[in-house]
Design a protein around this nucleic acid. Structure first.
Lengths: 189, 189
DNA sequence: ATAAAACCGAACAACATGTTTTGTAACAAA
DNA sequence: TTTGTTACAAAACATGTTGTTCGGTTTTAT
């Protein structure tokens, strides 16, 4: 009575993600999701109160996951398992994104990306707060801390967004360098 | 046959703006706008193809206006008519916003602010491009110019957004200082 | 005064949403 | 293997929204 439930939930997520890759969020009707997931109408509403909650749940799962794994890494640096260099958490995030795990990239560059970029940013804030702010790595003291945390998160999101809008021509390493150029004046490296 | 048209257009804009101040964009139905503006259904659709176009037209008018007046000012500085000091264009923008001319502030802090902040940002880019980029005032040369222009615009929008979320406790002068602290490393003052 | 335009109001089809009802299939525990 | 519970399906439903159409009225310019 649980494996079945999980399976349909996944089916809905999958159908929804696929649809999001081809049209805007607001252009997608519940009926389309139902058809694509091949489930009954009742079933959909048994799982999700509304389309907006479906979106919310999906985002929490996706961004919660990607941020949580990054959370496990040490503050400004971490020992990369694939290479030997000490890399920034941000480089790790970009690499993770580039692998397009669970189609996050598709969503972030989809028609309604502001929606997903918003969720991304709010999750990022938690990361910055715990990895930088609470460890005293914020250099700039003449502006409020939460203003600074918000700025760093927003700057990273904008960086990712700019990267995607140009079809990821640059490498994650390059993008990390761009990003660090912008925030180096305010954070300890 | 023209003053009449303009009048109803204004009535629709006014009704729409009022509604936007109290509920989210997607929660507003065309019928509500029609009722609030006290016009016929046919008339609405004669003016705007759809609700989305109404939004677009409204934003173009509002942000186009505020940016255009700022465009008229000299590059990094301008002679303020009210004071005697030379102030940044950004201070001018914040002051203009604080006067809440045409209820722009209401929209920017409304439920769907991402929507309006998006329009705001895209208009800001034009300003930054013409007032800074094209005049060689961008210090940082190690990152692409449009990446930098985007960053400055985004940072300003985030600054405004943060300011609004705290109910404008700070003065425009303070906010300008916060903002300049963040972007001073990359632009000529 | 007259013709063109902008407007109103009501009705319309098409579609979307969320609920309800009735019934079927899966599954876990006895 | 039977039994009771839970998840699902199918269809119908009330409700509300959208954008259009049509007949008729008011405004405005000339």
């Amino acid at each position: 009575m649980d494996r079945r439930q999980k399976k349909t939930r996944e089916a809905i997520f999958a159908a929804f993600t696929t649809l999001l890759a081809e049209k805007g969020y607001h252009q997608i009707s519940v009926q389309e999701i139902i058809d694509a997931a091949d489930i009954g109408r009742t079933t959909f509403y048994a799982h999700f109160e509304t389309k907006d909650y479906l979106l919310k749940d999906l985002c929490e799962e996706l961004f919660g996951h990607i941020i949580d794994t990054a959370m496990g890494l040490p503050s400004g640096h971490y020992h990369c398992t694939c290479g030997s260099a000490e890399d920034s958490v941000f480089l790790h995030l970009l690499r993770h994104l580039q692998e397009n795990d669970r189609n996050i990239l598709e969503l972030l560059s989809s028609e309604n990306n502001e929606l997903f970029l918003g969720y991304f940013k709010s999750n990022l804030k938690k990361l910055i707060l715990s990895q930088y702010a609470e460890k005293g790595l914020l250099k700039e003291k003449s502006v409020p801390e939460d203003y600074l945390v918000n700025h760093i998160s927003a700057t990273f999101v904008e960086t990712v967004s700019w990267w995607l809008s140009r079809n990821r021509k640059e490498s994650p390493e390059e993008m990390t360098e761009y990003f660090l150029t912008l925030i180096r004046p305010v954070v300890e490296e």
